[in-house]
Amino acid sequence: MASKENTYKNIYKENYAKVMRLCMGYTVGDEALAKDLAQETFIKVWQNLDGFRNESGIGTWIYRICVNTCLAEIRKQRKKDRNLSLDNIQVSDSDENPNEKEDMLVQLYSCIDKLSSINKAIILLELEGLPQLEISEIMGIKHEAIRTRVHRIKQQLTKCVNNE
């Protein structure tokens, strides 16, 4: 058990920041909610650790658990206008928390929030700098389709952040 705890602690330390960033992307920068989701992710990591067979890297495995936890838990937070086209959206950060977040980051959160849940996961993984092949493995979507989607979402996101 002690050995499992040590492994778990290392996994936690090495992956917490990226899990937290991904959760922050899902919660539109709501830190408390993101911490809950990150905790939920690591609880599932513990529960599934014995079954981890190293078929994919530990990082890919954790990202899968994190994305799925966010997909399962965050749905009730979705807003009615989530399916609007990004091209028509003007971003306002007036109701966010300006004391702690830089404007660009706040805008980025808002723009990510306008995406569908799957596109949101794809772009969050792209923002993390993951290779598209790994994103494809995490999402279960063909590499070619991921490539096309990433290209489209990147353009939309950049436009949205720049208020174009």
Binding site: K44, N48, G51, F52, W61, R64, I65, V67, N68, T69, L71, A72, I118, A121, E137, I138, M139, G140, I141
Partner: peptide, 12 residues
């Protein structure tokens, strides 16, 4: 939860 998101979504 460690399956790919597409399969996970379908299971859910």
């Amino acid at each position: 939860f460690s399956k790919d998101s597409n399969t996970f979504k379908s299971d859910l």
